[in-house]
Simulated scan of single mutants.
Amino acid sequence: MKVTLEKVHGSMNTFYMVEGLERNDYAELAMQLCDRDTSVDGLLVILPSQTAHAKIRVFNRDGSEASMCGNGLRCVARYVCEKEGIREAVIETMKADLKVKKEETLTDGIEMYSVEISPISFRLEDLPMEYAELEEMILQPISEISEEILFSAVAVPNPHLIGIVPEEIQKDSTHQHFWAEKFNGQNAYFADGVNVSYVTKLEQGIFVRTFERGVGFTNACGTAMTASALISCIAGIVPFGEVTVYNPGGMVKCTVTETAGAYQLLLTGNATRISSHEYQWEKESQESDFLSSRKFEEQQQYEKFINGISGIVDQFA
């Protein structure tokens, strides 16, 4: 079967994207594509919705399905808004229908979209996580890891374990890699694995590096950056409001507000089209292949943007 794909990214969290109908083998397509192109983190599937403008399903490199993807949602938001000729839409995700909006394009032609990140839960059972019979973990050490690093667990709705670390630990990813792999293998804490992010305060905001469940280290994870901004606000590292979040793939803005004890999260960043492709998709991987490809010029503009903030990002490379 021939399918049309777009290769897209938000903060260099890169995906193939396809529009289609519900079927039970998109995980196989995701693994096929990721096997052929190691630069991508997974597959975004755009489907019809009974409750929203469209529905998104997200498949990781290993074929597992994520509840949501903030960077991918921005790319789907752009696709839907441009197709429908609108500036705002609602996209159905696994846990909630979320508002998305086209924002002002950056001066160098980078298309920007904001997406709602919800629902939010601090209950460990919602990750799920089991630790010391706790119901929540907010800014607490995990003694097996470190008495100095304060960890927080939050589902948005993807499960995240977020540690606030000094520069020296952020610059060397060995520590994070060891514990992230442990928590995504056989372990007593996270039955379904977890996204592990390390956060470091910057003069201009925060820097976040994420080991993503089902992917590994990624250039950026939208829900992780937003959850990290939330925890950083709660910890007093940055004030509530708009938080600048740097990552290995670039930079986004996360807006964190609190109303009557409830938090609202908004993620704003690029939605960049890299290329379009015709792909022959067969059940047997060896019979599948790319038939044609066409590059867009948007990536060149994004790389110019990255060069402008490289001094901040490179210090943690």
Rank of each mutant, 00 (worst) to 15 (best):
I117N: 04
D108R: 08
L291C: 12
A191L: 14
S11N: 08
Q300R: 15
T51Q: 14
K7F: 06
T244R: 11
S118Y: 08
H277G: 12
N307D: 13
T174C: 09
I110F: 06
I120N: 05
S67K: 12
T259F: 09
R36G: 15
I309E: 02
G241K: 09
S310P: 01
E278Q: 14
F240V: 10
V194Q: 05
A153C: 14
F240R: 06
K182H: 15
V40Y: 01
T210G: 12
M251A: 10
E104V: 10
D108I: 07
L291H: 10
G236P: 09
T272A: 04
V196E: 06
T268H: 05
I120T: 10
F59G: 03
F59M: 05
Y26I: 00
K99S: 09
S276L: 07
E19T: 11
D25C: 08
A52K: 09
L98F: 05
A260K: 13
Y279V: 15
P141V: 04
T226V: 10
L33Y: 00
Q301M: 07
H277M: 13
H9R: 13
G269L: 02
H177G: 12
C254H: 04
L139S: 13
F211Y: 15
E284S: 09
I237C: 07
H53G: 01
T272N: 09
Q32A: 07
S114V: 09
